[in-house]
Amino acid sequence: MKIAVVQFPGSNCDQDCLRALTDGLSVPAEYLWHKKTSISGFDAVVLPGGFSYGDYLRCGAIARFSPIMRAVVRAAKEGMPVIGICNGFQILCEAGLLPGALIRNQSLRFVCELVWLRVETDETPFTARLGRGSLLRMPVAHGEGSYLADEATLATLRSNGQIVFRYVDESGRVTQESNPNGSMLNIAGICNEARNVVGMMPHPDRAWDRRLGSEDGKLLFESLVGTLESAGAG
């Protein structure tokens, strides 16, 4: 088993993601430079957070055309688990692998804080080991994380169970106060229809060790590893 962490110019959570996998879980993981055109030999892909291409034009708009993204799109369509975290989520939306868009936080503030998330579905490779309704604590750190989609898309996300995480308060209630960026329906993360591609604004890669303030992020990576193992990727 080997997991790829894609590095775009301007990625800055690539090391966090790699360490979460290699140090947190002892799973083989390697960086994959965005100029590469193949992801053969890897079983899953992480698009890390950061400011790819300086967020020029729109967050993720230019990274989406990096050579590696062609291979990522192909692999995603063939069912490979892909997770985009923060800027990675923005890139997945720009690439059309996930519906909707992430716009400037309603407060216009860059939010950098620990939030509570409620797991809305266990039917993704990244939440398979998490109970539906369970609460996770992890940080957000973004200026453009307000999830937006039209009514039809939101209805589809709901009816298909594609909403993966929502911002909640510490007792698990969806409230306006617990929404750090103005996301519609308090959406913090979604998946595609095939359920193998997940995008989320909060950072599991910054919450995999008690010294980081939370270990909850580790559960997502453990779910991924469990899914890959049961699929036979030794």
Binding site: L57, R58, A61, I62, F65, C93, E94, P99, G100, A101, I103, L148, A149, D150
Partner: peptide, 8 residues
Amino acid sequence: DLLSNPVI
């Protein structure tokens, strides 16, 4: 595809 995002 690049200069604008038709979603927004």
